[in-house]
Design a protein around this nucleic acid. Structure first.
Length: 530
RNA sequence: GGGGUGGUAGCUCAGUGGCCUAGAGCCGUCGACUCAUAAUCGAUAAGACGUCGGUUCGAAUCCGACCCGCCCUACCA
């Protein structure tokens, strides 16, 4: 297992000018589930998140509040860290773009790109809105009929010197790379979107700005600051010390490169799927394995907005924690979220239904009925019984428990690794459903009334208990706390296991183990009002 | 405007390269059972497969047009 390659997964770094909301929680939770799953499978994992702190917007907000941009960034970055901690996340580092370790490496990267000719000083000319102090794109200018949307005054042609990244030079290389790596952008709909847009041709992109100063100064040209996007993208590399391969940081972390997944929201796909890979090509760094762009949560059927009052902000999320608990929240995020190309609706009613159907009625009830019978008929002590060769059902052709469960374990693990997290959760629950099925089929609670059938009851319940245990192991990445609770009640834990395959292997629950009655998810009466 | 993506039972969605008299889960209704958290199990109800036209012996599945939703359209992130 130790020979397996280390795994690296990243969230976008969150812009400190935003308030934390469900979108941040969602992306980060998905990454956390994957990171936990891979760790549980014995891989060394590096899970990175952080905050993006430069740019004109931060500078402006700070000015309005009468504080320095750094003070504003410190405050909001701290809030993000606090908030993320509430979600039970296991990130290995939290990078901030205002940290010296990041800034110094960004400069090194940029110097390399200057030297290679991938960044050059050029002149930009475009339509400028003098009131807003910003350029608008040609297409946008046309839409606006060359007038400022704010002041109504005409846009003017303006010029400035900027440093540019030679994106256009990478068109062919990117196309070849995409053709060879159809899984590079997922889901596939997003991949097509990127290909389509690529066909329009790539233009060089500016990497510096001169109309504000809150950013990393361009090496050798301090009147230019590095444009926030470029600054931000580098975080994935600077966190591992790749900007300076001789550094102690690099020695420790460079092995994690390249990332297995850059998990992002669909709105920032272009930067991650095109600009970032081109930059990596220019720097001669290996490509990430996959950019996974999820869609957005909508709320009660409508786009979230402050004016509609349906924004799922932190207090709203807390109310779900209070009512249903953190793990239920994680289950909902993981299994019901907009991981595909379609947006997903977040509604209190749906949350409640999923909680009740999946967690209370399926998982918890099964753990409860099994442990309850174990207490009742075997004084809470796991009986000795050969369950591995026992069929999961009397119907012809039914597989044995060991074959069935081990297959489910392998399948669940594959789903986790492939970032099919909802499928992983469902696959784990399939074991629970099989346990429910055999209880219904064999009715051990009836057999238990006949003392001569106690061995049969022992076999059935031993299989059930083992099934619950295996399911709890598999569900741990999604619901770490509740699964630990269930596992503890079943006399075991996932601490220090070498791999999922070992931990969830059929037969791990040994005879003589104390199994206590447990009830991990309790019924909640009514949906919370949002 | 251009590009992308989706429009299938009340809800969320499956439906590989055409044969589906269209499936699953949840919700609803009826029944069974009692180990279990009003649980579980069984049965049952429900759909013009966005619209129109075309190809075909035959289309939810292929082609065209249109309608609706959402995303992207690169110097806010």
């Amino acid at each position: 297992m130790s020979s397996r390659k280390p795994a690296y997964i990243t969230t976008p770094i969150y812009y400190v000018n935003d308030r934390p909301h469900i979108g941040h929680a969602y992306t980060t939770t998905l990454c956390d589930v994957w990171a936990r799953a891979m760790r549980l499978d014995g891989r060394e994992v590096f899970f990175l998140t952080g905050t993006d702190e430069h740019g004109a917007k931060v500078e402006k907000s700070a000015k309005e509040r009468g504080v320095t941009p750094q003070a504003l960034a410190d405050e909001n970055s701290a809030e993000f860290r606090q908030v993320l901690a509430l979600f039970g996340l296991t990130n290995d580092d939290f990078i901030r773009t205002t940290e010296a370790r990041h800034e110094s490496q960004v400069k090194l990267f940029v110097e390399r790109l200057m030297k290679s000719g991938d960044i050059y000083l050029g002149e930009f000319e475009g339509w400028y809105d003098e009131g807003q102090e910003e350029y608008v794109t040609d297409t946008r200018a046309k839409e606006l009929e060359y007038k400022s949307p704010i002041s109504g005054r005409p846009l003017v042609r303006a010029k400035e010197h900027n440093y540019y990244f030679k994106l256009s030079a990478y068109q062919g290389k990117l196309e070849a790379f995409f053709a060879a790596n159809p899984q590079f952008v997922r889901p596939s709909g997003r991949f097509n979107e990127v290909l389509g847009r690529m066909r329009d041709g790539l233009q060089d992109v500016p990497v510096t700005r001169t109309n504000f100063s809150w950013g990393i100064a361009m090496p050798g040209a301090p009147e230019h600051v590095i444009y926030v996007w470029i600054d931000a993208l580098f975080n994935y590399a600077t966190a591992l010390g790749l900007g300076d391969s001789s550094s102690a940081l690099a020695k420790e972390r460079a092995k994690f490169w390249p990332p297995e997944y850059h998990v992002i929201g669909k709105e920032i796909l272009w930067f991650h799927a095109v600009i970032w890979p081109a930059m990596l090509m220019a720097l001669d760094l290996p490509m990430p394995k996959c950019v996974y762009a999820h869609s957005f949560w909508i709320s009660n059927g409508q786009k979230m907005s402050k004016s509609l009052g349906n924004f799922i902000d932190l207090p709203t999320i807390q109310s779900y924690f209070d009512t249903y608990g953190l793990d239920a929240w994680r289950w909902y995020m993981t299994t019901q979220g907009p991981i595909g190309t379609q947006d997903a609706d977040f509604s209190p009613k749906h949350f409640h239904e999923i909680y009740t159907a999946n967690l209370v009625n399926t998982f918890a009830n099964c753990a409860s009925r099994t442990s309850s019978m174990m207490e009742k008929y075997f004084a809470g002590v796991m009986p000795a019984a050969d369950t591995a060769s026992m069929p999961i059902s009397a119907v012809a052709g039914a597989p044995t428990w060991s074959v069935f469960a081990n297959a489910a374990v392998a399948k669940t693990l594959k789903h986790y690794a492939d970032f099919e997290l909802a499928e992983a959760g469902d696959c784990a629950l399939s074991i629970v459903r099989a346990v429910d099925a055999i209880i219904n089929e064999t009715q051990p609670f009836k057999l238990a009334k006949d003392p001569s059938k106690i061995d049969e009851v022992a076999r059935i319940l031993a299989a059930c208990a083992e099934g619950v245990r295996v399911a709890a192991v598999l569900l741990s990445p999604i619901m770490p706390n509740k699964c630990a609770e269930v596992l503890a009640a079943y006399g075991c834990s996932i601490d220090g296991v070498g791999s999922i395959t070992d931990a969830a292997h059929w037969g791990g629950l040994k005879a003589g183990t104390r199994v206590c009655k447990c009830a991990p998810f309790m019924r909640v009466d009514a949906p919370v009002i949002v």
